[in-house]
Amino acid sequence: MNRTISCTINGTERTLEVEPSEKLSSLMRRLGLKSVKVGCNEGCCGTCTVLVDGRTVYSCLAYAASVDGRNVRTVEHLGSIDRPNPIQQALADEGAVQCGFCIPAMVLSAEELLEKNPRPTADEMRKHLDGNLCRCTGYEKIESALMKLAGKEEDV
């Protein structure tokens, strides 16, 4: 039995039909939000991260139906190539984007942290991004990009 849910996705209110077993990652990708990757489908890699009411959620674990009445955001909403969000810009400028498969999720996790705490310590940053695996970068440039960004916000 399909279920009808209403939610806000990237700023637009939507009414959607979902199967009870459908995962949120599948719904997102079905809607064309291809920034939501599925690296493991078992809640371990974080590449499927989305923001639900401002909090990061592994969309491969969450059911699509669970976002009924909620606000879901992905990086498609955060910035565009012409007007990137500062996190996207910082990662790109610092050379922190290698294959890029982990990066949209990384951006969302960083967004969640910086929204709450614009000046995190390196330790807070590392703890917060712990659920987002990256195999290419060794995290070094991701960390330095985000710490520079946090430092910059401090100056403002």
Binding site: S35, V75, G100, P104
Partner: peptide, 21 residues
């Protein structure tokens, strides 16, 4: 020179650029 990787912003913006996309 450390010029910005030419696909970095597209990737950070989640453009559909991978096989599953």
């Amino acid at each position: 020179h450390s010029v910005r990787k030419i696909d970095a912003l597209s990737l950070a913006c989640g453009k559909p650029m991978f096989v599953p996309d």
